[in-house]
Amino acid sequence: MAREKVIGPSSGDDERKQHDAALRPKLLKEVIGQRKVAERLEIAVRASQKLNEPLGHILFDGPPGLGKTTFATVLPNELGTSIQMTSGPALSKPADLLPFLTNLEEGSVLFIDEIHRMPRVVEEFIYPAMEDFRIDIVLGEGMSARTITYSLKRFTLIGATTRSGMLSGPMRDRFKMHEHLEFYSVEELATIIRINSGKLNTPITESAARELARRSRGTPRVANSRLHWTRSYSAAKHDGSISEPIAKAALDMAEVDSDGLDKNDRRYLEILIDLYGGGPTGVEALAATINLASDTLSDEIEPYLLREQYITRSPRGRVAMPRAYTALGKLPPRPKPDDKQGSLFE
């Protein structure tokens, strides 16, 4: 199995990461969903082993919680090598990359989460490392400056991003594979929930697993969070097992409705409809009103609302769709004959 090294500061909720790591698959054959992606990665891994070459650099993109980090940790296990992990915000200057690059082993993996948040100067520093497995270190300044070239072990860079469009063209071009991860079906999420409940020694019925899956926004990370909460609810109020009535009661208490919308989703839709008349409204205005970062809205809340047609994006901003009004128990407005947005409600 891969030997995981984490050097430098990390970001995110440590408790959530521990839960995710405990439930995360170890091999490609254990991954549920994203089958086309897994099959292409399996081909790349087998080719790397037969050709005795490092795996080509890989970029994963897609909304949060769909398995980018899971694939990044599974691949070193398949290759029998080590992995070092960091994130774009932790790499503010080229010197921050040096401990990672100089500690690389032959064929090992360097994983950079939120790679789109790396400063451009760090991007440019890593170009020769990705292409020629070397880095150029400048010593001194002005006329006395000199450059030392340091050779690196051959390695694989795996990047994960929720916003691949924010990466520069030269950076994207240096990845041999670019894989976009899609939302999961209810059946796939129910399978993940059943497997992970087994890992947690928590009995769960088939109908309960499907109920949790239906309310998990097509996202494994959300499904795991829903499972952990329901498990805690059952342990506190029942015998620790999860039936469909227990699952419904637990999620109702967590303010997760039957469509998987949570209180932040409903707050978003309420403000868009009640305060801004259904839009169009810019994301910055919505973020300021909700008191959340615009990145949080764009990366975590909006992808599901867009996919399920609660909202749409127009050139002038976000617009509430008929399903958003229905979810809040409101009637969609009747379009005026000259209303340019009228076609959205026909």
Rank of each mutant, 00 (worst) to 15 (best):
T69S: 11
Y310P: 06
K330Q: 10
I126R: 09
N291I: 03
S232L: 15
L331P: 01
V6G: 01
E30P: 00
R307E: 13
G277F: 04
G62C: 06
D20T: 12
L91I: 02
L28K: 01
G329R: 07
A293F: 08
S343E: 14
L110K: 05
D173N: 12
Y268V: 05
E106F: 04
S294Y: 02
E255C: 09
R194Q: 14
K68Y: 01
L98H: 11
S82L: 01
L101S: 05
R35Y: 02
A209K: 04
G317C: 11
Y150Q: 12
G33W: 10
P337L: 06
R313H: 14
A160P: 02
Y276Q: 09
L331R: 14
T162E: 03
T296Y: 15
A324P: 05
T81I: 06
A209E: 08
K336I: 00
L251M: 11
R266S: 04
T161I: 06
P25D: 12
R24P: 04
P119Q: 10
P335S: 02
I7W: 08
T70N: 08
A320M: 01
K50S: 15
R318I: 13
T296A: 14
D136C: 05
S314M: 15
A254G: 08
A209S: 10
P315L: 00
E78V: 02
Y150G: 00
S258H: 13
V37A: 12
R117N: 07
S298R: 15
H116Q: 12
T70P: 02
R226F: 05
Q49W: 05
I7T: 09
G88H: 00
